[in-house]
Measured scan of single mutants.
Amino acid sequence: TTVHLNGVTYTFPNPEEARKFVEKLAKTLNLKVEVHNGTYHIE
């Protein structure tokens, strides 16, 4: 599972880890999250 954040790409072997990371980040920084083909894009 891949996460794109400010031009940096993070790869998680575990989709659940990626989801938790994204949710925590989005909540902390009040960001918008979009998912395209299983890839998270955070703005």
Results as ranks from 00 to 15, higher is better:
residue 1 T to N: 10
residue 2 T to P: 07
residue 2 T to F: 12
residue 3 V to T: 01
residue 4 H to T: 06
residue 4 H to F: 12
residue 5 L to N: 01
residue 5 L to F: 15
residue 5 L to S: 02
residue 6 N to S: 08
residue 6 N to P: 06
residue 7 G to W: 09
residue 7 G to I: 04
residue 7 G to R: 06
residue 8 V to K: 11
residue 8 V to E: 09
residue 8 V to C: 15
residue 9 T to H: 09
residue 9 T to D: 06
residue 9 T to K: 13
residue 10 Y to G: 02
residue 10 Y to V: 12
residue 10 Y to D: 00
residue 10 Y to N: 02
residue 10 Y to I: 14
residue 11 T to S: 10
residue 12 F to D: 00
residue 12 F to L: 03
residue 13 P to S: 10
residue 13 P to G: 08
residue 13 P to A: 11
residue 13 P to I: 10
residue 14 N to W: 04
residue 14 N to Y: 06
residue 14 N to C: 15
residue 14 N to F: 07
residue 14 N to K: 05
residue 14 N to D: 11
residue 14 N to I: 05
residue 15 P to S: 10
residue 15 P to V: 07
residue 15 P to L: 08
residue 15 P to G: 10
residue 15 P to N: 11
residue 15 P to E: 09
residue 17 E to C: 15
residue 17 E to H: 08
residue 17 E to T: 12
residue 18 A to N: 00
residue 18 A to V: 07
residue 18 A to C: 14
residue 18 A to L: 04
residue 18 A to D: 00
residue 18 A to R: 01
residue 19 R to Y: 09
residue 19 R to C: 14
residue 19 R to E: 06
residue 19 R to I: 11
residue 19 R to G: 05
residue 20 K to F: 08
residue 20 K to A: 10
residue 21 F to R: 00
residue 21 F to L: 03
residue 22 V to H: 01
residue 22 V to Y: 02
residue 23 E to R: 05
residue 23 E to S: 05
residue 23 E to A: 07
residue 24 K to F: 14
residue 24 K to P: 01
residue 25 L to G: 00
residue 25 L to R: 01
residue 25 L to I: 09
residue 26 A to T: 09
residue 26 A to M: 13
residue 26 A to H: 04
residue 26 A to Y: 04
residue 27 K to S: 06
residue 27 K to A: 10
residue 28 T to E: 13
residue 29 L to E: 08
residue 29 L to P: 07
residue 29 L to S: 07
residue 30 N to F: 06
residue 31 L to M: 08
residue 31 L to W: 04
residue 31 L to G: 05
residue 32 K to V: 09
residue 32 K to N: 06
residue 32 K to F: 07
residue 32 K to L: 07
residue 33 V to S: 01
residue 33 V to Q: 01
residue 34 E to K: 09
residue 34 E to T: 14
residue 35 V to D: 03
residue 35 V to P: 01
residue 35 V to W: 13
residue 36 H to P: 00
residue 36 H to A: 04
residue 36 H to V: 14
residue 37 N to G: 06
residue 37 N to Y: 03
residue 38 G to W: 02
residue 38 G to H: 05
residue 39 T to G: 12
residue 39 T to W: 11
residue 40 Y to N: 03
residue 40 Y to C: 14
residue 40 Y to W: 12
residue 41 H to Q: 05
residue 41 H to P: 04
residue 41 H to T: 07
residue 42 I to M: 06
residue 42 I to F: 10
residue 43 E to P: 02
residue 43 E to S: 13
